[in-house]
Structures are given as C-alpha cells and as structure tokens.
Design a protein around this nucleic acid. Structure first.
Lengths: 226, 226
DNA sequence: AATTATCTTTATAAAATCTTTATATGATTT
DNA sequence: AAATCATATAAAGATTTTATAAAGATAATT
C-alpha cells in the first residue's frame, strides 16, 4: 500500500520519534529517523525520502537553516513540527519553503491527513494495480485488458469472469462459485453459461485454443487462472 | 505583482469577507466574494480563480459538499476557513481534497504565508492543465475545448461530462458515477441523459460518428475517454 | 415579453450482448 | 470398442443496451 512511501523525521525528542514511528508504521509508511540537523541532511541526501517531517528546535542547528539547505535541492513536501506557535516562526518557515506547519502537541489523525494531502498533490498520478501474467495485462482500476500491449475488448460478463479468475490466480474456482458470483445464486446449475463464456474469453486471450495456457479447465470442478 | 492572482472567498460572514478584502487587496491579490454555496460554485465555474478560501458553515449547503463538488473539476488550491476545530472535520476536509485548514479566528499573516506557499507549489508544478489528445485540446483551467485549433462551443453539461472523462483518461467511468457526478445522486437511473449528451459531444469532437476514437462506449458499464 | 439556448423526455432504429439450442470433441468407464 | 459424461464451440434467437433525432419544457438572454 503506502509501503513504498518513505518518510524521514528529523527531531531530537525520542518520545516524538517513538510516537510517529508507531503511528506512521501502522499506516504502512516506511519511517527513517534522524535526531540532529547534521544526520537529517545526510540521510535526506543519501536516500531522498518522499516527505520530511522537520522539527525546528534541533540541538546543533536551527530548523529554519535545515529547511533552507534542504530546499536548495529537495522539492518534495516538508512539514514543520514545532512547539513554537508564534506567527513569526510559522510565516518564516512557510516562506522558506515548508509546505505545512503543525504546532506540538499535534493530533496524529490531523498529521496523517495532512501527510495524505501533500502526498496526493505531490504525486497526483497514483499507480494502478496492474496484474501482468505473461503477455496478458489486466488493470483492475482502469478496467482494461491488454494482450501483447494491445487492448482486448471484453463484454461486462467476460470481464467479470476474467477479473474473478485473475484475483484468485492459481486457485481453482468451482463452477458453483463462479456462477453464483457472476450470475447470482439462482444460476448455480447453468454450467453451460460458464462454458460459453470461458470459450469466448479464451478466443480473446489465448494463443492456442487447443492448449490454453491461462484459463485452465479442472474437469468436474471448475476453472483456474495461471 | 500578485495583481493577476485571483482568489475567491466563499463565506457568509460579512466581517470575514471585509477583513480578507482589505488584507488580500493590500497584498495585491484580486478578490472575489460569494456568500452562499450556490453562488460560490457558480462563480468558481464561470471564471475559475487561482485559489479558493472556503468556509465550512455556509447557510445553504455544507462546505464539505461544496468541496466535493469543486474537486470534481477544480484542481487548484482550496483552503478551508472554519470555526470548527474538531479533528474529525479537519481530517474530513483534507481527505476531501482541501489543501489546508485554518481555524477561525486565524492570524492574517499566517493565512498570507499559507496562500503564498500553496500558490508557489501550484505554479512550480508548471501544471498547464491542458490535455491534448490527437486533434482535441482541452484547457481545464480556461474551460475551453479546441478541435484542430478551432474552438468548439460546448454547453455547461457537455463540458462537465467531457472534462470528467478527460480527467480520468483511459479509465472506464460507470453510468452511475457519471450521472451522480454531473446531475447528482438522484439521477443514477437516468442513463438516457448520458446517451443524449454523449451523442451531442461526439457530434462536436469526433470525426467519424460510426467509429468514435475518443469517447468509447463500454456497453453495460459506461464510457471511457482515450 | 420575446427570443434563444439548453435541458429533459419520448420514440424508434441499430448494435451489442446474453441466452439457448445443437452438435462436436475428448476423456473415462465398462 | 461402445457407451457415458463433461467440456468446447458455433450459431440462431431473444433481450438488453445504445445511438440519434426530434418534440416539449425550462432557463437564460436580449
């Protein structure tokens, strides 16, 4: 999920880092920690994170200075976390390139929402869950199917059947289960429907109809997608 | 300076509008005012501003609803201004697409800094929201459509439909989704509306009506823009 | 108030999809 | 090898969905 999203926190208070560690990790973010300005800058540069949480009150250098140095090359979101609530500090931080400023103690739900908001606008093009099996490519969010990079046109029922099989890749799905899922509970004896639609699907995605490589018949039981 | 930057405030409290009027104008922003959700949406649509300040407590409709409707087509910054400081409201607004949330009474210096911050990242995105697909050109900020460099005249509904499809290029949008987004939740069975407007749109942007290249029918599901 | 533009409905033809039937193929059992 | 059973495929018929025009209603503009 967010597991590929990396967040770096630069803060000298261990209890804040602990809190965020728990909060962010349980929301599937990957967290890296630095307790000094020095460390933070090195970590950010060596492996740039997707977002930085920056404390203003660091022991070795002012957070404002860290922000300025970061902004010389780092263009992703930076959120300031600070005990300082003076307008002067907030304005200065925002004008130095911070994207947001939260006063400690902050509410974790709000922080998470602000992180989501910034990550959303940072990468407005979220990646799609694409299932690729050999030359077949199924994009479940776009509802498209490609074979050898070319779009395959499927009807609603054909797509539903394929999607169900793909989502349970490798598993044998019984006739009853497939019929119930796609046509409804009153259709569980209409195995012929299934045969007709499996045949149509194969015609569209298999290369050799006599040796289907993806939609496998499990005689007497059901079908399986490989 | 900022004189070309237009900000729309949607808030029913006259004293807030007055305050912002003075504050923003003295910082060279051009301010437009709306006191109801209805007015605000119309003004935003008729001449899209560069940033919107939105109150949650509007007389005719919840600000959350206004935000949702705005976000169907408006991609520039929206800052929520609200007396409500509950975390629940903040999280909801941010997750609905707000870029920032300030609790009233707010400090004007901070508001100005947050506006600067958002305008800065909005412009650095260099997001010229112009989508070009073959001979079709759609400018989502100007709300204009061109075909072979010539302007195409679309009605509001036609444009809304096209913009929604274009913003989700490649994705199948279901009848229900389109109807709900454009006409409202109570219209989800009026598929005929969709057919009529799709036909009208195609007449204006497709070359061969028998082989539409852009607005693709997904029989039984919806439509897709390619 | 009249005109124009746009939206909503209705009607109908065309296209796409689903269902059903018929028949073929292949595997398994006797 | 014949009979039986499960599956595959084609194709006709039925149904659903879509496209389009055009009339009626509503809203916007002059």
């Amino acid at each position: 999920m967010n597991n590929s999203v990396e967040i770096l926190i630069i803060d000298d208070e261990p209890q804040i880092r602990k809190l965020l560690n728990i909060t962010l990790q349980s929301n599937d973010y990957k967290l890296k920690e630095a307790s000094t300005a020095q460390d933070g800058l090195v970590m950010a540069a060596s492996h740039p994170p997707d977002l930085i949480l920056l404390d203003l009150g660091l022991p070795d250098e002012s957070g404002h200075e860290v922000l300025k140095k970061l902004r010389e090359w780092y263009s992703k979101p930076v959120i300031i976390l600070s005990v300082q609530s003076r307008e002067e500090d907030i304005v200065k931080a925002l004008d130095n390139g911070a994207n947001d400023y939260l006063v400690k103690p902050f509410r974790t739900g709000e922080l998470l929402a602000r992180i989501r908001s910034l990550l959303r606008s940072a990468s407005s093009d979220a990646e799609n869950p694409v299932v690729t099996v050999g030359e077949i490519e199924i994009d479940l969010s776009l509802r498209t199917v490609k074979k050898n990079k070319e779009q395959v046109k499927l009807t609603v029922t054909e797509y539903n059947l394929l999607a169900l099989l793909v989502k349970n890749e490798g598993k044998v799905l019984t006739h009853q289960f497939l019929l119930r899922s796609i046509w409804g509970p009153s259709y569980i004896d209409q195995s012929q429907y299934l045969r007709v639609f499996v045949a149509q699907l194969r015609k569209k995605i298999e290369d050799d109809l006599n040796k289907p490589l993806h939609i496998i018949t499990e005689s007497g039981i059901g079908y399986r997608f490989v």
